[in-house]
Structures are given as structure tokens and as C-alpha cells.
Amino acid sequence: MTSQICCYIFENHHGLIFNPDSIRILREKYRIVGCLTGNLPEYPRQNNELGLPLELSREECCVLADQQIISMYEIILPLNNSEQDHLQYLTEIDIEFQKQKIQNGHEKINEILLNRQSILQKKIQSFNENNFENDEFILSLLETNNAWQNCSKSLEENERIFLLNIIQQRLKQFTLEYMFIKLPIESKRINLQIRLITSEELKQNLKLIEQLRCDVFADLYLNKNQKYWISNGQKFGGDYLVYFDDPSRCHSTFIVTCVLRNEIELNSTIIPLTHLIARCRVAVNVNKICVLASRKSPISSDIEYLTINWNGF
């Protein structure tokens, strides 16, 4: 099965998804939270609200690829600029500018005619000359503008000429600098080279703790008894935060920390007792349950979980 959701893998082995429809599907249908990493075009200097693209962790990429929900691609660098790509981009910009220019023209004409009484009363007395040029673009707009066609019949000649000058001045203000640019959600490069990669390739050369995190995430995500929502848990000192519902509707219940135990030494752990106490106290203070996740044995893929409660002694 070929997935329709394209995920692009970069050097840090995290995936980026640029299509907003794909992001909505991942959130609503597959319980994938991810992390928005881009600035909003309207507010580029703030970081309180972020936008596209959505960044997926290595763990999210692997489990989605194994379930054939996404296809992972690696862009082959370097990217070579093509003259044809550049010309195509400029052509698309020019076409979009002409569309916006027409739309803006009709909006300005309607706005001027709506306020024509106040405009004529204030300025027509000081108007003595005809500066209107026979601009073909403006004339074509006026011919298709119903408001002008209906209004111009009741205007005197000097009023008509005056409004034409006002319209001309206003429309000249709309240049390329004021047009809206639609951000592309996919590359249209002719010579773009991508390579399909698998989750096995993404997991190559991982450290023991990174392998454990991937296995724990998959075990929680694919749990048959309960559909969990999982997000990054670094802000609370853990690896994952686990929710019973969409994170926009509820708080997380568990702080999961992945622990190497049997992989290092039999019946040992790399978490000092003082760190374990600190993690437990943090969980209690934020009204969550501290969970330690590890493998049952070095050769087993089964994950076991240990919950820790603080009794206040």
C-alpha cells in the first residue's frame, strides 16, 4: 500500500510534514501530536503560536511508517537551481498578481463609490483639471463593475472625472509589494531528487536508549486496550507525556521515562536514587503519575512499566 502522506526526513532524523490536510489526518485519525515548528506568515517575529511544518520525532516516524500511514523520503542534497524552475515561479507570481490586482481594483472602486458623497463634497471644489489617463486596465475594470455602471449614469461630468482620478490614484498604489504570497506546500522543482527510506534505515546506528525509546513509543501507541495520545515529555523531565484524549481537551496522566536496566547490568539501573525521587516529586507536584519503562530482558521486545507513587513520608 502506498501512503498519501509524505514525510521528509532531514539530518537530525526527524520528519517534516508540510501539507495541512495530512497534518489534520494525523491528528484526528491517528492520534499523532507532533510539534509545529514554523512561524506564522502574519506574525513572523513571535514564537507563542507556531505553524507549518509539523515536526515528527524519530519514534513517531518509525511507528507510522511501520503501519504504512506515511511514506518517508530523504531529499538528496545539494539542490541545484534550474533556470526553468525560476521562470516558472516568476510566471506563477505574475498570474497571481494579475488576479489580486483585479480583485483589489473592484474592491477599491466599490469602496470609493460607497463613500462618493463625502469624497465629492470635500474635494471637488478644489479640483479644476482632468488628470485621468485612459488606462486600459482601469477601463476594463469599470466596464465589468456593476456599481460603477449604475452610479456613473447619475453623475455630472465633473463628478465623473473627479472620481475617475481618485480611482486611478488608488489603484496605482497596489504593487507587487502589497500582494499576498501563497506559501507552497510542496516543491515543484524539476530536478528534485528524493529517496524512499524505511523505518529500519531510520533506526540504524541508534544508541541503546534511543532504541528503547522507539520500542516504548510503539508499545504505548499500539496498545490494544487503550488508545493513548503521546507527546514529548522533556518539559517535565521525562521522555513522553501520555494522554487519554486529545491534548487540546485534557491534561496528561503519565510521565514516562525510558530506563536501561538489563541492557547495562543485570538487576541494575542507570537512574540514581536521588534522580528517581526528584522525578517522582515533579510528577506529584503537576498531578501526574511517574512511570518507568524498560525491557523485560535484553533479548525480549516486551516492555514492562513501573508506576511510582509519592506517599509523603
Rank of each mutant, 00 (worst) to 15 (best):
205 N>E: 13
125 Q>F: 13
247 P>D: 05
309 N>Q: 14
232 N>D: 15
214 C>R: 00
48 N>L: 14
313 F>R: 14
245 D>R: 12
225 N>Y: 12
14 H>F: 02
196 L>G: 01
81 N>A: 14
224 K>I: 10
141 L>S: 07
128 N>R: 08
299 I>K: 10
249 R>N: 14
307 T>F: 05
305 Y>E: 06
281 R>M: 14
99 K>W: 03
23 I>W: 07
216 V>K: 08
11 E>K: 14
223 N>I: 08
249 R>C: 13
289 I>D: 06
190 I>G: 00
48 N>H: 12
54 L>N: 04
7 C>L: 02
241 L>Q: 06
291 V>M: 02
246 D>R: 10
110 N>P: 06
90 L>K: 08
19 N>D: 06
142 L>Q: 07
111 E>D: 15
125 Q>P: 15
82 S>R: 08
199 S>W: 01
11 E>S: 09
114 L>H: 13
124 I>K: 06
123 K>A: 14
13 H>C: 08
225 N>W: 12
51 G>A: 09
122 K>P: 02
144 T>I: 13
229 W>M: 00
280 C>Q: 12
51 G>K: 06
197 I>N: 03
109 I>E: 00
88 Q>F: 10
219 D>S: 11
56 L>F: 04
49 E>I: 11
99 K>V: 06
304 E>Q: 14
213 R>D: 04
8 Y>R: 03
265 E>G: 08
38 G>I: 06
41 P>Q: 09
3 S>F: 07
54 L>A: 02
37 T>K: 13
173 Q>D: 08
84 Q>A: 09
128 N>I: 03
77 L>A: 10
183 L>P: 05
181 I>D: 05
74 E>L: 15
205 N>H: 09
80 N>K: 14
107 E>I: 10
43 Y>L: 15
159 E>Y: 05
47 N>T: 00
174 F>T: 04
267 N>Y: 05
142 L>E: 03
86 H>K: 13
313 F>C: 15
230 I>K: 03
29 K>A: 03
233 G>E: 02
225 N>R: 10
57 S>L: 04
54 L>V: 03
72 M>S: 02
202 L>W: 04
136 E>R: 07
84 Q>H: 09
3 S>D: 06
11 E>T: 00
305 Y>R: 06
232 N>L: 11
141 L>K: 01
73 Y>Q: 04
64 L>E: 06
193 Q>A: 13
24 R>T: 08
252 S>H: 05
219 D>Y: 00
91 T>I: 03
57 S>R: 02
66 D>G: 10
271 I>K: 05
238 G>H: 01
245 D>M: 07
220 L>Q: 05
185 I>V: 12
39 N>W: 08
110 N>C: 02
148 W>I: 01
65 A>E: 09
146 N>W: 12
309 N>H: 13
176 L>N: 09
30 Y>C: 02
279 R>K: 15
158 N>E: 14
41 P>S: 04
248 S>K: 15
306 L>C: 11
287 N>C: 05
78 P>W: 04
302 D>M: 15
181 I>T: 03
277 I>M: 15
148 W>F: 02
132 F>R: 09
197 I>K: 08
285 N>R: 11
165 N>E: 13
149 Q>V: 12
269 T>Y: 07
82 S>C: 01
238 G>N: 04
216 V>Q: 07
